[in-house]
Amino acid sequence: MGKIVISQNVTLDGVVEDPTGEEGSAYGGWFDRCMAEDRAAWAELEYSEAIAADALLIGRRTDAYFGPRWNVAPGDWAERLRALPKYVVSSTLTDPIWVNSTVLGGDVVEEASRLKQRIAGDIVVYASRQLVQTLLHNGLVDEFRLIVFPLVIGTGKRLFDDAGTATALRLQGARPIGRNLSALTYEVVRDA
């Protein structure tokens, strides 16, 4: 049985919205503001996660953002991401942008449950905040891998807004990434 792993870049106060500033929010662009001296360490961690993954599960907007970038990016990390099977959750999309992608157009909970049955390893979810909340609310998340950026924004959409349910987590690991970032890994604790 597969494991759904949420892999997110978040600010210290949990904001995931507009990390690159392309959405035009007043607080956007926090990813690059905090990244200068830590980019290589962050990229190494992300690459190792991609190597260990068996599939990606993403939403339509994440496909639209990552597809054009990673389809043409050079290097081993980009090649690995292109090679991974990707499953795009969408009720409107018919042709995903990111190569090697399949659209899951049915009920999100049913589709994700079937995916967990079919894939034996890590099914990593990048970005896709709305999808993350749906998966969490329906008990389908197994692990969180959070890269915490040392910035408190105070406003913006947070990873756990409207999660819909209290979820117990168990810390599996915590370590610095570069000088300023932190990598936190939490396992979701299932009811006994």
Rank of each mutant, 00 (worst) to 15 (best):
A52V: 04
T134C: 10
V125D: 12
Q130L: 01
I123R: 12
W30T: 00
T134R: 13
V125G: 07
R118Q: 14
A78N: 10
L135E: 02
R60Q: 14
L104K: 10
A73W: 07
A78R: 12
G24T: 02
R80P: 05
L151R: 10
E111Y: 00
F144S: 00
L81E: 15
W42L: 15
K116F: 10
Y126C: 00
S48Y: 04
R114E: 06
R33E: 08
E110P: 01
G121F: 03
R61D: 08
G106E: 12
G156N: 04
G139F: 11
T155M: 09
A43S: 13
A52S: 14
D161G: 11
L56W: 10
R118H: 10
W30M: 03
G154Y: 10
W42D: 13
E46M: 12
Q130W: 06
A36C: 01
D107T: 08
A78Q: 13
A112R: 09
H137K: 15
G28E: 05
R39V: 14
L104W: 09
V125H: 08
D38E: 08
W98A: 11
S25D: 03
L151S: 08
F160E: 01
L56E: 11
E22H: 11
G59I: 06
I97E: 13
K157F: 06
R82T: 09
V103P: 03
Q133W: 00
H137C: 13
L93I: 02
P96D: 05
I123L: 09
Y47N: 02
L45G: 02
A41S: 12
A64T: 01
W70H: 09
V72I: 12
I51S: 02
E37M: 09
A127R: 01
L146T: 02
R69G: 00
R80G: 05
R145Y: 07
A50H: 01
R114Q: 15
W42H: 07
G28Y: 02
